[in-house]
Every structure is written in C-alpha cells, then in structure tokens.
Design a protein around this nucleic acid. Structure first.
Lengths: 214, 214, 214, 214
DNA sequence: TATGAATGAGAGTTCATTCAT
DNA sequence: GATGAATGAACTCTCATTCAT
C-alpha cells in the first residue's frame, strides 16, 4: 500500500528486504515522531529503536526526510484502507454516509497521534514529497465525494453538485478536528456524542429544500 | 494586547524599550518562521532581520522558544482583536453570526500564513507556553459561543444549548480550514463563494425544527 | 590595610569614594566567589549583589580580574591582622608560638571559605597580581619565623637556624590543611583536638637535642 | 588503572578504542590544563591537541567536565601507583616510612604541575565526580596510615593510635607543600634538603616518649 | 549487506566590557 | 559620577551523513 515507498531510492537491490527493513524503520520512527516530534528525534534514535545500525539504516533511505515521507505515507495508507472498509457495505447514499462518517471519526480517535503527526510535520517535507502527501489527502476526501454523489444520485441527500467537494472537505476536517481540538472537546463530549451531533448537523444540512448555499 | 509578553523575563529594565524591541523581534520572526519554519530559522537570522545584534536580542528574550511564544501570542492577539471588531455591530443574533463568520473567514484569508504557523509550530513550545496559547484559542471560540447564545436567545437561531460549544468550534475550524486546505479549495472556490456556502450550510443547520442532534 | 588597592586604577578621583565602593564590591564578590567560584560568577552578579550598576562598578575597576585581586588582598589583610593580634602578647618564644599556632588555626577555621578561595583562584590572577599575593603569603609566614627566632633566642625552642623558615612554612600549611582537608579531618578530630595534637607534635620537634635534621 | 573511566559513558562501543582515545584526550588535556587552566582551555583546543575532530572527541566524552574528571583520575592513578612501588620493599616500619616519604616527595617533585592542577581544579568538577576524587585522595593517605601502623606495631615508631590518621595527613600535605609552596621553598632548599629535614622532624616526632599530644 | 567510528559545519547561548546619555 | 543598553567574539555541544572495513 505504501506506494510512494518505491520512489525513495535504496542502495539495496533485494526489494523484499527493502520493504521489510523499511517497515521496521517506519514503526520505530512513528513512535518517536509522535513522542518527540520530527526535529527532536535523531537518526541515531530511530536506528537504535528499529534495531538497525545507523549505517544499515542509511542503506535503505537517503535522508532523514525520507523517513518522514515513509511515515506520512504509511499513515495515509492506514487511514485510507480503514475508511475503505466502511465503504464496502451497501445501502442508500445517506446510510453509507452515516456509516462512513462514523468510521472516519472512529479512525481519527484511534489514530489520533498519527493524524496530529501528519498535520504538524508535513511542512518539513521537501516540496516533491509534500505534494505526494497532499495528493493522498485529496484521495481520502474523494472517497467522501463519491458517497455524497451516490446520495445525491439516489435522492437520499440534497446537495448542489458544486457543493459536493466542499461538503467532503468539511466532513474530513470535522473528523480531524476531533484530534487537534481534543484538548477542548473531550471535556464536553464523548466520541459517541460528538459523532451523533455532527452527523445530525450534516444530515440536516442535506435534507429538504436546502441547496447548499447556491 | 500581547498580554503574555509580560511573563517572559528580560534583562532590560525600561519596559517601553522592551515592548518596542520585542515588536521588532516579532515582526522579523513572523516573516522568517512563515518562510522557513521555526526549526530552520536560526537565532542569528532573526537578529539580523530585526536589526539587532545577537547579543542585544538575547537581552530581550531568554531562549529561542520565547520568540515563538511571543510570535504565537502576537498572532492570537491580532486574530482576536480583528474578530472583536466584527462583533461590535448590533443586530439580531443571526445577523451577528453572519457578519462574524464572514469576518472570521476574511481574517483567516488575510492572516493565512500566520494561522498556519500557529497550527504547525505550537507543539514546539514548552508546556507552559503551550497551555497559554491553547487558552487564547479557547477564548476566540468563546466569542462565537456568545454570538450563538445571543441568537438562540432572540430566537433567530435554533440550536440545542448543549451544542453551542460544538457549533462554535465548527465555525472556527471551518474558517481555519480555508488556510490549511487552501491548496485544495482555492482551485474550486473563491473566498466569497466559500464564505457564502459555508454560511448557508451553517444557518440551515440552525433553522426550523433542527435541534442539533439532541 | 588593602595596600594593593592603590595599584588598581579607577576612573574616579575621590579616593574616599573609591575606597568605600571597593569595599562594597569586595564584600559582594567574596560571597559570590565562595559560593560559585570565580569563573562561574558574572560581573553582572557582582554588580547586582553590591548594589551598583554594572557601569558604575566598572568605574572602580578595570577588569573582572581586578575584583579577584581586591578580594584576595582583602582576605590576606584579614588573615594577617588577626594573626598579628595573637603576637601582641608577651611571654617566652615557646608560649608565643603556642598562642600563635592556636590563633592561626582558629582563624583558618573561621575563614575557612576564604582561605579555600585563595587557594583555588589565585592562579586566575594575572602574573603581576599573583606575585603580590604570594608576597603577602610570605609575609604571613615571616610572622612565624619571627616567633620561632624569638624562641630559639630565649632558649625555649630548639631548632637549627636554617630550619626556621621550613618550620614556619610547615606551621602555616598545617593550619591551611584544616581548611582544605576538612572533608577528611573533621570526621575524626574537633578543631581543639586538632590544635592540641599538632601543637604537641610541633613542640616535641623543637625540644631536647633535636637539631631539625642538620 | 583509571578506574572511574568506566563510569563515564561513551557513544563508541569498542571498549579498547574508547580506552585508547581517552588516553589521547587525557594527555592533551593534562598539558593544556596545566598551561592554561581548565576554564581557559577550550574543547576545540583539546580536540586539536589530541588529534581528534571536535565531533569525534565528543563521541568519547559527554561534557568538558568529563575531561577534567578523566584527567584528575589519571593523575591520582599515577600518584598512587608510584607510591605503591615504594611500599613494596621490606624492612622495619621506620625504614618503610623513610622510604615512602622520600618517594612521595620525589613523586610530588616530578608531578608537580599535575598535583597543582588537582588542587586548583577539583572544585570545578560536578559533585559526584568530586566525591570520587576525594576518595582517591583518602586512599593515598591510607597508604601512609598502613606504614605508620606497621611501625607502631614493630615498635620502631612511637605514636598514639588516635594520631595515626593525623600523621598520615601531615605527611601527605607536607609533600604537596613542595608543589604549592615551591615559589618560596625552592629558593632555600633543594628537594634533597627538604626531604632530609622533613624526615628528621617527622621521625623525631615519633621517637622516645612522645605520645603525639594525647 | 552490515557496521559504527569519524566528521565539522553550525546551532543556541553567554558575558566582559564599552560608551552615549 | 552614575547608568544600563548594546555588542559580538567565543563558548560548549549536536547530529545528519559518509565510508572504510
């Protein structure tokens, strides 16, 4: 799934080995970046934590930023695959949306630290890597666009076509909000309450004669 | 307005001077942090940019993190004061909200870089400074809570009391979204369109029999 | 008494004022040097502690080393004047010696910190200042030479003339030893015991047919 | 012999190499500390002098104070091992003492600079390191206690048991005195004369009915 | 493939001293 | 005489990266 992994060059020829070693690196780096942040984590710490010597680690990456890229990519893959699970079910667009939102919020809760990590460290990536990460983000948003379109198509959701993209972004962001505003929200709502209320608000927006601000 | 400035000790006795010099430092640091990020900006660069010698700069701060604190605090003060302007007008709660949202979004657009800065670098602050920054964030949210309460009070907005806080957070975050998803949004919507649609969605949520998911 | 004070130039003409301000400086610096050592004490700290501004302080000294010189000189003056008191009494040489030794040890005890200071920081003085400090040390030793000579003269002490200087040095050093070996000695002897025993040993050396190794 | 070396952590795994590099560091630092003192010697100077890059040097130590600790420890090891040589010979206690004193004084002469170094810079060590250095000092003193006890045991030295520790300290300090009062003593006595006279005085103290002040 | 010792530019911070007011 | 803001050289220490083995 870590598709971008292939873009990062390695000195080692054996692709299987590269994949395995990089998984070690990603696991260790994820933990450390979450705990200390990208800048305060040293390459030596990553190497130690993943059981490779510093020299060996550098056979599988080229720069420290590569590690960040691998980590961000891994996290996005996780997020995306978990979200896709929720979309496998069948039902009306409205039902699918309800399920997708709930799953999205649940994933945000579970991967809270990782989501935060992406939000705070993406800017440290080199331009090219950054673009590829943003593309992943857009793909996730596109999943919601699909669900919304389906709902508009089967008449269970009312929304101006030109607002579909906006609504998709709103949904994604309101999920992420649970991670980066947790310090304020968790004191007042449980995840269940939060999900319920946000879902009610969203569905209400897409009911009746509302045409989404057109 | 930079209230926390007083908490950061300085070697210089003249309070006026401290305030002036710190303004220089903040201006220079804001620019640099936006362009290069906190970690990739050196203290020497900040000093050069604000026209002080490195030694002199350190008479007005204690650590590099103090500069970040000063910067974050300054940005929040700006955000808050600009938002308060919009709240000075009179009118129904619904009208106030419409105006406040528009102003909030406009401020987000204008201070885009600064808002991003806060979102990405706050985590680099020491614990204590971080708490003070989050408090500022909560105060801004509270401004929207007030407007919403007013609307609920005068009957122009329908919203379960227990959802007021949630809605306030939603509004703040949807504004910030314009800054940290600009790469995706600006291709499809102008700020005006964005504002119009989001406002329509929000107002629709608070119209009729909708009780916000209770 | 701080004779060398005159050698250190000052910008201020009024000699009285110079003397008074320098006393302030010495008191503050003594404390600080004892607590933190010369190198870890900053000129700013000294200024703050003695109630002068840093600029004013520098009107009365030229360098930080001047302060150390003043301090060392002051301490020696104290040591010497206290020792001279003990020598004012009359009696046989042997009696004088006993009294001088006891007083010397007592002074070492009381000025313990200061004596240590001299021993550890003198080397940080510039050459010229160092020489002047060593001269003071020699003068103190000379006081004991005088007492010993008196004893040899009146027949109450037996000592080869060529060993008088050596014995004087021994006495001075055995006193200082109480300060720089206190960590080992104070666990086994009180100052009284220490004084008694060392005195007994010394007097025994200068009794009977002993000719001091000639 | 530098037993405490093991307590100082190193980034390098190869213990042999650590030992070798640290010897380089110690040699260079000894020279520099003797010439300029600890505080006026920079880490870069030490690195240059011992032929390592600054980065490499820091792989073998953690702080500049570690270097001082290493140096002090090395000096004590030298002092102790040289003194132990002199104690290997057999003979009466009195003979052993004579030999030990002469050797101690000779070592003081030869390692004059190093002994001074220890006396002046030990205070710059962190607490823990300082304690370990004082313990070494006490061990050296204990060597003399043993010799004295032997002499008391075989009847060749007369000394109250409770004065043995005191006498041991006296001997050690009178040796060190040759280093830190050399400026005064060397003008009047050669090392041989100094040794002869001090020995005579000491032996006389422990002859006949003298009971050391009890 | 794997290792880990070596590197050195560059980071943040300090502080004795000066000098305009 | 008194003040204290300004200075910048110099300090200790870090760490991503390389390369000989």
């Amino acid at each position: 799934m870590t598709r971008n992994s292939e873009k990062i060059p390695s000195m080692i020829k054996n692709r299987r080995l590269v994949e395995r070693r990089r998984q070690q690196i990603i696991q260790a780096a994820c933990d450390l970046f979450v705990r200390k942040g990208f800048h305060k984590t040293t390459t030596r710490e990553i190497a130690r934590e993943c059981g490779l010597s510093i020299g060996t680690m550098y056979e599988y990456i080229q720069t420290k930023e590569d590690v960040l890229h691998l980590v961000c990519d891994f996290i996005h893959s996780e997020l995306e695959s978990r979200l896709r699970e929720a979309l496998a079910w069948t039902g009306t667009g409205r039902e699918s949306l309800t399920r997708a939102v709930a799953q999205h919020f649940k994933v945000m809760e579970e991967m809270s630290d990782y989501v935060l990590l992406i939000y705070q460290e993406t800017k440290s990536l080199p331009k090219e890597a950054m673009r590829s990460i943003l593309k992943r983000e857009e793909e996730i948003t596109a999943l919601f666009e699909e669900v919304l379109s389906k709902g508009v198509g089967d008449g269970t959701l009312k929304l101006a076509p030109s607002s579909i993209k906006l609504m998709a972004h709103n949904i994604v962001v309101l999920g992420q909000m649970w991670t980066f505003r947790r310090w304020a929200l968790s004191g007042h709502y449980t995840l269940e309450e939060y999900t319920e209320r946000q879902t009610a608000l969203l569905l209400h927006e897409m009911t009746d004669e509302n045409e989404g601000g057109e």
